[in-house]
Amino acid sequence: MLIELAVGLKVPDNVEITALRTLRALSINVASLKRWEYYSFEIDENMEEQLRETLLSVDVIVNANKNYALWIDNEQADMDKNHPRYMGRLPSFLVLVEEQDPADEHLLRIISERLLIGGVKHVERGTLWRISTPEKEGEGIVRQALEQLLFNRHYQKYKILGKIRGGGE
């Protein structure tokens, strides 16, 4: 089975702020940006509970002083602002940017050799962006933001995971 985790910052995210300013300076009409570190774990079903519990309690990918973590189990819109699928006033797009080979062997080794959690077969990591735009042709704007700033096609790839309807629509 596959479980997915989004890790965000409790403090203001400088990357988010700089990316938004840069996109606006490039005249790309993005209203807001939100960023999370994204992890997916392919695991044996009986290991799910142990992995979920351990990953959130040890300081490997989540530092409780500065990070929050959310399991992103379903595709329902959410009312929590920190959730990737938060439904804001404007429509937004959820985009995953990863390296062309997103496998994270280092993290897999940490999980199996240091945290001693068995049953984890594969780990991938990437960056999850929620991009809101006031434009009607929102997807075109999102692709422009990706091409101009948020990804480099020579070693990365992106997937638009879905559109989140805006509350003001």
Partner: peptide, 10 residues
Amino acid sequence: RVRAGVVAAR
């Protein structure tokens, strides 16, 4: 931020 050098490049 984002990727090394990309923000300065813009």
